[in-house]
């Protein structure tokens, strides 16, 4: 029972962190059809900025998160403007190469600036200890990660389903040319959603720093995981990404607890099974 519970909470926390980071990737991939392997790099940049702001500059946790999200978006804007815009609509291979190139660059620069050591983001006291739930207690930062995932899912649902911007976004996803001819400024929609996606990646990188530690190879190590989550969930689908994160987080965490010697074997086996059965992802749309 105890194992079941701790596996369950760990899986939920891990799944939610995956969700916060990869939902941005899912939105950009559904919208702009860019296979963005550099998404994890933005999460890593967020983590580095937060760690720098909290440890060297002495800001509080909340302020560090804010600075990191804004800072990552500021870094991402010229990258979008000068690099990504040239590969919209290009074949997958081109996009993969370009974004792998960006990832390599970010890793090299992060290594040069911050050194190869692991960076931590000090948690505030309220998130440090365990939280008593009455029948069991779990680590506060895991609870915080789960709460963040729920808030992000709800917020994105509201943004996309209920606001005028969401209407334009959905219109551009369905048919960019038609949306543009009806007066939607698709370039601005693209830029804003790219910024939101990058901001969410940075946020997820910080919130998940306890589970996915920040180090220069972060971008490469989890790059595949984020891509897999999006592809399993179906690009552009929020419920799909949520479902994929919970399923894959559950499989990965259970595998690590019960059969640690198999590593990620079951994770990738599940990925192959799911992608073969649902080539458009669990909740992806048919074209």
């Amino acid at each position: 029972m105890q194992t079941v519970f701790s596996v369950g909470t760990d899986a939920l926390a891990y799944g939610m962190v995956l969700f916060v980071i990869s939902i941005g990737l899912s939105v950009t991939m559904g919208l702009m059809r860019v296979v963005n392997l550099a998404h994890g790099a933005f999460a890593m940049i967020g983590g580095y900025i937060a760690s720098y702001a909290a440890q060297t500059l002495g800001f509080g946790y909340a302020a560090a998160i804010l600075i990191a999200v804004v800072g990552t978006i500021i870094i991402a804007i010229p990258v979008e403007r000068f690099l990504y815009r040239r590969i919209y609509g290009a074949p997958e291979l081109t996009q993969v190469l370009m974004t792998i190139g960006i990832t390599f660059c970010v890793i090299g620069i992060a290594n040069y600036v911050f050194g190869p050591t692991l960076k931590t983001i000090p948690l505030p006291d309220t998130l440090r200890g365990p939280v008593d739930l009455g029948f069991r207690s779990i680590a506060a930062h895991k609870l915080f990660a789960i709460a963040c995932g729920v808030v992000v899912a709800g917020g994105l649902w509201f943004l996309i389903e209920k606001t005028p911007f969401g209407v334009k976004l959905r219109a551009s996803v369905d048919n960019a040319a038609m949306a543009a001819s009806l007066g939607v400024r698709t370039k601005i929609v693209y830029a804003v959603s790219f910024a939101v996606a990058v901001g969410l990646a940075a946020f997820g990188g910080i919130v998940g720093a306890e589970l996915l530690p920040i180090e220069p190879y972060y971008a490469l190590r989890y790059m595949v995981t984020f891509l897999v989550v999006v592809s399993v969930g179906g690009a552009g689908s929020i419920p799909g990404a949520l479902l994929a994160c919970l399923v894959l987080g559950g499989i990965d965490t259970t595998g690590r607890y019960l059969l640690p010697e198999y590593g990620e074997f079951f994770f990738y086996l599940a990925v192959i099974a799911i992608v073969c059965t649902f080539p458009r992802g669990l909740l992806g749309r048919k074209k």
Partner: peptide
Amino acid sequence: RGHGLAQLVLSIAVVHLFHEIANK
């Protein structure tokens, strides 16, 4: 079995699977 993104992800999963098998 896949096309586009699904194909890429399948290929990544395959190489990781081979890696884990060899490791195990």
